[in-house]
């Protein structure tokens, strides 16, 4: 697999004048492979939002390097290219929509890139259809629900035709319905359009849907593996201020009682199957 984003021994600290620098990342290394769906988990303040901002040169590492498709984010000449290739979606849907009409907002990115008007039109319509918001193209953003706004924000990113999307807690402010819609959209973009997805979240059930889960703690990678491998480490996760899905937690309890249930179940369905199998 090809590396798409590489963090090479990155050290990063926020510097506030008159105060000691607050270290966030220490000698942090991580590779994101082209086409994968990776979830980054961690409690608030573990440095995961900083990882997002380093991905497209919004922040630059004090030590080490961040490479996007081989391009160094510290190279100012390459910044527009990098930002076109790595799109970003943030937590608060209200604070990333620029225009007063949905379709104009989706056009914002391509317009900044100087794309030809007829091509922008095509991309905007296409992006809105992909996130299932085409019928809302003439709406004003403030009349949409949180989940709908977030899908407009995603459309705005895919209209720039990125190779990778980084989403920083995109569902934290949404209701269950909105969360589900956004997750479905993200998975569809990854599976059907081959877009690399970096999903920063603290919802375990969302991380369980990824190909790979990276757990961060104190600015370092604590665990890195498939969701099954990671969630089987319940104790380690708890120490990092995280949880395991309830199905996984129950499987661990039943296993301790001598029941023949695998410890790496992720969903309720798997657990029900496993318990039924153990009964026989």
């Amino acid at each position: 697999m090809n590396d798409y984003i590489q963090f090479q021994n990155v050290t990063f600290a926020y510097e506030i004048e008159g105060e000691a620098p607050k270290p966030v990342l220490k000698d942090f290394s991580l590779n994101v492979y082209a086409g994968e769906f990776v979830a980054v988990l961690g409690h608030n303040g573990c440095g995961k939002s900083t990882v997002a901002k380093l991905c497209n040169g919004i922040e630059l590492p004090q030590k080490g390097k961040v490479l996007v498709d081989g391009l160094d984010t510290a190279d100012e000449e390459k910044l527009l290219t990098i930002r076109q290739r790595v799109g970003m979606v943030f937590q608060n849907p209200d604070n990333q929509i620029v225009a007063t009409i949905v379709e104009d907002d989706v056009a914002f990115g391509p317009e900044n890139l100087g794309v030809d008007p007829s091509e922008i039109r095509r991309r905007v319509d296409d992006a809105l259809k992909r996130v299932d918001m085409y019928d809302f193209r003439r709406f004003e953003p403030h009349n949409l629900s949180g989940g709908q706004k977030q899908r407009v924000a995603i459309a705005g990113v895919i209209a720039m035709q990125p190779a990778c999307i980084v989403l920083d807690e995109p569902t934290a402010m949404l209701d269950p319905r909105g969360r589900k819609d956004v997750m479905e959209t993200v998975k569809m973009l990854n599976r059907e359009h081959g877009i690399t997805v970096v999903l920063i979240t603290h919802y375990m059930d969302e991380a369980a849907q990824a190909d790979r889960v990276v757990v961060m703690d104190h600015g370092k990678v604590l665990l890195d593996g498939t969701p099954r491998q990671v969630f089987a480490r319940g104790e380690t996760l708890k120490q990092a201020g995280l949880d395991v899905p309830q199905a996984t937690a129950l499987a661990a309890l039943l296993q301790r009682d001598g029941l023949d249930v695998p410890a790496d179940v992720l969903t309720v369905d798997e657990l029900a199957d496993a318990i039924a199998a153990a009964k026989r």
Partner: peptide, 13 residues
Amino acid sequence: CRCYHGGEGRTRM
């Protein structure tokens, strides 16, 4: 993040 860099080189849909 959406490549805004002022009015220069900007097109309109």
